[in-house]
Structures are given as structure tokens and as C-alpha cells.
């Protein structure tokens, strides 16, 4: 007999009962559909003990790693504290410890969390200002003992939050932020798998974090990064990434400009996802990461899939607004 904790209540699961049935028997309303592990409506997450692997079949491996499971298939082997996806609404405190420009309109921001936190590079957190204005930003650095988080924030001319970051946020000031969310991150254990990463603008932030994570795990499959922008002003980290490509023979970096008059050979010219998917044409067995402009993400997702990538191996963060 195991105990299931949900929403501050604890339930005992009867023999052979699934987590979903335990909750339903106790009149807890949670979403579900087919009860066969097909529709994924009953997705949940364990905050402590790992769920049985049999309840994670068909989920993305990044979700598996984060202890997501299908409650209709889950006959718990250990006590578990379970939540619905994204139901955690805890806010944490952090202090701004670094702020500088990466380019004319991109700011590098480093926060130090007051509490220890778990995250994967490439996930995002919601940053919240005192008056409640909240925006999502992706984590560009890997897990570290100092609980630091790095962000690349593009300043929009009329952007409520990003303008405030540019004009008013200062080192030493406090911000609140949510736990890390999302399944767009690296996962260890498949170090030989080829990776394709495509980003526009500050879509580079999560991709940069993922690449650093991959290299820290000694990923030895090919890693292809394509970073796109309209013109040169939108690219940043160019030198850093070129250096990285020199240092790691399996890392390839292609900065792309879509409407530049400067046709220098320093850059590829055209739309970033079209260039990337032309050069990496056969994606069977690949893992694909897509971040940034929603239209780009949408098109690239379909193209990557039609070119052989499994849907489960495509990780996307459209920066929707």
C-alpha cells in the first residue's frame, strides 16, 4: 500500500490501483480521457519519488526525467507527492548580480536565487516584477552550486518588461521567479545522438544552455547550431561560438542573416530554418531543438518531422507573446 499526496491531502492507494483511480475514488477532480495511456490527458508529475517506468511510456525523455507520468497507467511502487503539470505556483526570490549588453538590443542578466533550485539549461522561468507583470525567459546556463541563472533578454522598443529590464533594473535589486518549466533541455545518456539546434534572436539563450550542458556531458555526436537574425545587430556571441567550434570538432556553428545587404561570407544568407534543414536533410534518429520566433518554430517543426525526426525528439519553445 502506498500513499499519494495531492494538493495537501494524502490518500492511500488500494491494491493494484492506479494513481488516477485513487484520486477519482476520493472525489478529486483531475483531467483524464481514455484511461489507456493513449490520450495523455491525465499527465501528472511526481515531486519526490520516481514513478514506475511503465507509466512513462510514450512521454518525451525530458518529461520522463522530470518524473512526469500518466496517472491512468501508474500503479505506484513508492509514496508519491503528485501535481498536475504546471500547477506549482511557488515564487522564489533572486537578486540581480550581473547586467550588461551582449549587443545593442540584447541584455545579459544574471540572477542569484536565495534558495537552492533544480533546473535544466534550456528550461524557462517566469520573472515577475513587484507590480505583478510577468514574462517567461529561458535559462542560458547550466546547473551550478551557486544557484545562479543567466538570461539573454531582447529589448523591445515598447516592451513593458524588457524595457524595464534595460532602463530600471539594477544590480542588487530583487526579483521573484517561478520554478523552471518546459521540456526543451538536454538529456544525458544519448551522447552519440546528432543534435540540430535552430534559434532566432534570443532563442539562442536556451540553445546556448543546452549546448553547454551537452558538452559538459561529453556529448560526442555532431551538434549543429544555426542562429538566425534579420541583420547583424541581432546576432550575439558570434566570436564565442566560433571559438567553441574550434575547440570542439563535433560542434558546428552557422550564423544566418535573412535580410542583410552585406553579403559577406562570414554568414549564411537566408532564413535560418531553411538553411539548417537543407544542410541537415535527413533527421532520422536526430534530436531537434527549436527556439524563438513562433512562426519559425512552427514551420521548422513540420519540416524536421517530415525529414525524419520523431515527434518525440523535437523540442520546441516558441517565444509566444
Amino acid at each position: 500500500m502506498t500513499r499519494i499526496k495531492f494538493d495537501d491531502q494524502t490518500f492511500t492507494s488500494q491494491n493494484d490501483e492506479t494513481v488516477l483511480d485513487t484520486l477519482l475514488h476520493n472525489n478529486v477532480q483531475v483531467p483524464y480521457g481514455c484511461k489507456q495511456g493513449v490520450c495523455f490527458s491525465c499527465l501528472m508529475r511526481s515531486l519526490d519519488n520516481a514513478p514506475p517506468a511503465s507509466s512513462q511510456v510514450g512521454l518525451k525523455d525530458t518529461q520522463q526525467k522530470q518524473n512526469y507520468f500518466l496517472s491512468c497507467l501508474c500503479k505506484p511502487e513508492n509514496d508519491m507527492t503528485v501535481v498536475l503539470p504546471n500547477a506549482e505556483s511557488v515564487w522564489l526570490d533572486a537578486e540581480v548580480i550581473e547586467k550588461r549588453n551582449l549587443s545593442a538590443n540584447v541584455i545579459f542578466l544574471k540572477l542569484k536565487s536565495k534558495d537552492p533550485l533544480a533546473f535544466f539549461a534550456g528550461q524557462f522561468v517566469n520573472l515577475r516584477r513587484d507590480d505583478g507583470v510577468t514574462r517567461s525567459y529561458s535559462i542560458a546556463n547550466i546547473h551550478n552550486p551557486n544557484h545562479e541563472l543567466e538570461f539573454h533578454i531582447r529589448i523591445l522598443p515598447d516592451g513593458q518588461f524588457s524595457r524595464w529590464v534595460a532602463d530600471e533594473l539594477q544590480i542588487g535589486m530583487l526579483l521573484t521567479f517561478s520554478h523552471a518549466q518546459g521540456s526543451c533541455h538536454y538529456i544525458e545518456g544519448k551522447e552519440e545522438q546528432p543534435l540540430l539546434l535552430i534559434g532566432t534572436g534570443t532563442g539562442l539563450a536556451p540553445l546556448y544552455g543546452i549546448i553547454r550542458d551537452a558538452l559538459s556531458y561529453k556529448h560526442h555526436g555532431e551538434i549543429h547550431l544555426y542562429h538566425g537574425s534579420r541583420d547583424e545587430s541581432g546576432l550575439y556571441f558570434v566570436e564565442k561560438l566560433r571559438e567553441l567550434a574550434k575547440k570542439y570538432s563535433n560542434f558546428h556553428y552557422t550564423p544566418c542573416l535573412s535580410s542583410s545587404t552585406d553579403l559577406s561570407t562570414d554568414y549564411a544568407h537566408g532564413r535560418v530554418h531553411e538553411i539548417a534543414l537543407k544542410e541537415c536533410a535527413k533527421l532520422d534518429g536526430w534530436r531537434v531543438y527549436l527556439c524563438g520566433q513562433p512562426e519559425m518554430v512552427k514551420h521548422a517543426k513540420k519540416m524536421a518531422y517530415l525529414q525524419g525526426a520523431a515527434l518525440n525528439s523535437i523540442y520546441a519553445d516558441p517565444f509566444t507573446y
Binding site: Q36, V57, Y305
Partner: peptide
């Protein structure tokens, strides 16, 4: 069962 659905969906949808 569901394993067959999971195996078929990628191929079919493509």
C-alpha cells in the same frame, strides 16, 4: 495496444 498506437502514429502522421 497503446504501444502499437505509439509506434504507428509517427509513421502514419508523416
Amino acid at each position: 495496444g497503446e504501444a502499437a498506437v505509439n509506434a504507428a502514429v509517427d509513421i502514419f502522421y508523416r
